[in-house]
Nucleic acid binder design. Sequence first.
DNA 1: ATTGACTGTTATGTTGCATAGCATTATTTT
DNA 2: AAAATAATGCTATGCAACATAACAGTCAAT
Lengths: 158, 158
Amino acid sequence: MSGESLKKAQETGAESPLQLRDLIGYHLKRASAWDLHGANAALEAAGLRTVSMSVLLTITENPGVSAAEICRILRMQRANIVAVLAELESRGLFLREADPGDNRIQRLFPTAKGREEAQHMLSLIGAHEEKMLAGLTLAERDELRRMLAIIWREDGEG
Amino acid sequence: MSGESLKKAQETGAESPLQLRDLIGYHLKRASAWDLHGANAALEAAGLRTVSMSVLLTITENPGVSAAEICRILRMQRANIVAVLAELESRGLFLREADPGDNRIQRLFPTAKGREEAQHMLSLIGAHEEKMLAGLTLAERDELRRMLAIIWREDGEG
DNA sequence: ATTGACTGTTATGTTGCATAGCATTATTTT
DNA sequence: AAAATAATGCTATGCAACATAACAGTCAAT
């Protein structure tokens, strides 16, 4: 099996996999691209993309976060969140409030409409994921989520 | 556990996960982005990117493939492989040969240098993946690879 | 009080990914 | 055989994701 061959390769010092298909990164990219296609298609009904959904969810799950904090949480650039927030704000999905103690910071709070929209998007995405993960048991999905989290949280804080 | 809560949610018909962190797609994207960072950094020594490596490996693993076939294998657009092939060709990593029976098709064959470079890149990527996957056992890595393949091969042929 | 750091923001560039169209060659249908 | 259909390699082009540099305003630290 591929596991045995890889193990043997590593033990002998020839640690490089033999084929493209042996690379986890290859499958990660293919699976992620496939997911993003489906996710953005599912969200098309809501008129938003995955990035906007992630930002909105970060606000609803952390009322009062600042834009900079969202960027740290989602690992995105401060410059790139501006347009996303402008879009969400124009739809009335969150409100900006001045921080009482720090005039640089805008605290972001979800509106009722924002919470509704977040729930709506989650249900759309949930349906998409259900289709995408049909070949995996619920236990396997948990395992997969757990392993993926291990991978990217090894980036020096996640 | 999160698996139980998800299972219960599905059984009750409230199939949408509650949090961003529950979405497999979220972790897929984060893990893939993290991998691509590291992979491209590792390949910087070779002066190529992951996309070029995938194309080169497809050639070395399938001598005589055409560009269109590579595009189908790697799920990329014919228009976008042109620059990649031009780069690989300028480095003498493969040769184009006219197809005996079809003048539209160019058959691509790796050169000796191309095979060396492919092996070199595989060892660089292997080292990168070893670091990235340090938190997973070899059995878990096989499991992960298997599950990811299930996900993206469900796209209507892989 | 000055230095340094952080926030939100604009401007800009790069890369990946997707579409449309084209000339050439093959295949299929009539 | 002729005509319609399709595939190949390719150019041009656009959009979206992602990254850098710089800015003014505000705060913190020395």
